[in-house]
């Protein structure tokens, strides 16, 4: 399979702060679901922002869809989709107005945007709210609109940063199924999350980032074998060095007394 994302020696430091990324090397092939996990502050969102061309003052080489992100960011952006961690929406707009706006930014025809937006909103259960301003929406409803806005242009690679945040159980099942079918259709999914069991179930490969460095990059089965541990949660704990959970939980109970 073709390599669609190639990262070599990626370093990044926010001005005046400690380095966030300390030399990342990663290759992602077309049609893969990559589970990109790590503790808070590990550099997950920063990596995604660099891959999307939102941050440009990094050092190292980054190619997406065989194009250099520094020189061809615009071309790359046409073919990738992004669902950010925070529900960043123009909330005074209605879902239909917002999706029309986003669709136009991808130079889509209005009639196509309208058809797709209505269909997709209907499929996620928002057909009764098409013309309602989003500032009255629940977190889950906004998340659904956000998911659609990241995919409405049918991208080749989809970057998802905590996409299940606020969704109810049925919506979570639906999104997981959509991601599986997108993979079958040849789409690449770069999935960043803290919900380990979802990452474990849907990912073809799991990349664990800790303190700006990749400390594991394998299938779940291989990680399990290497670590001799049964779940991704335990593997993650072992690798990120946080194996004090049990004693901390006991201390917590003690403090409650």
């Amino acid at each position: 399979m073709n390599t669609v994302i190639s990262i070599r020696q990626l370093h990044y430091t926010y001005s005046g702060e400690q380095p966030v990324l300390k030399g990342i090397d990663l290759e992602v092939r077309a049609g893969e679901i990559i589970g990109y996990i790590g503790p808070n502050g590990a550099g997950k969102s920063t990596t995604i922002k660099i891959l999307l061309g939102m941050i440009s003052d990094f050092s190292g080489e980054v190619e997406v869809l065989n194009r250099n992100i520094r020189t061809d960011a615009l071309e790359i952006k046409r073919k990738v989709g992004y669902v950010p961690e925070n529900a960043a929406l123009y909330e005074v707009l209605t879902p239909l107005e917002y999706l029309t706006f986003i669709g136009r930014l991808y130079s889509m025809e209005d009639s196509i945007i309208e058809r797709k937006a209505e269909d997709l909103l209907h499929l996620v259960g928002l057909s009764g709210h098409l013309n309602q301003r989003m500032n009255t929406f629940s977190k889950g409803m906004k998340q659904k609109v956000l998911l659609i806005s990241g995919m409405i242009h049918n991208p080749e690679i989809i970057f998802l940063d905590e996409p299940l945040s606020g969704l109810d159980a049925n919506a979570v099942i639906l999104v997981k199924e959509i991601l599986t079918q997108l993979r079958s259709a040849g789409k690449t999914i770069f999935y960043s999350s803290h919900i380990m069991d979802v990452v474990e179930k849907i990912s073809d490969r799991i990349v664990i980032l800790n303190q700006g460095q990749i400390i594991a990059n394998d299938t779940f089965e291989e990680l399990k074998e290497q670590a001799h541990l049964g779940s991704l949660e335990r593997i993650f704990q072992g690798l990120t060095g946080d194996d004090t959970t049990q004693s901390r939980a006991s201390d917590f109970l003690q403090a409650l007394q």
């Binding site: 939102m54 952006k77 046409r78 925070n86 960043a88 123009y90 986003i102 930014l105 991808y106 130079s107």
Partner: peptide
């Protein structure tokens, strides 16, 4: 409002 950047910067707009 940083929402604007999160919405616009990942899109194919120069």
């Amino acid at each position: 409002d940083s929402t604007d950047n999160t919405i616009l910067l990942p899109r194919p707009v120069s």
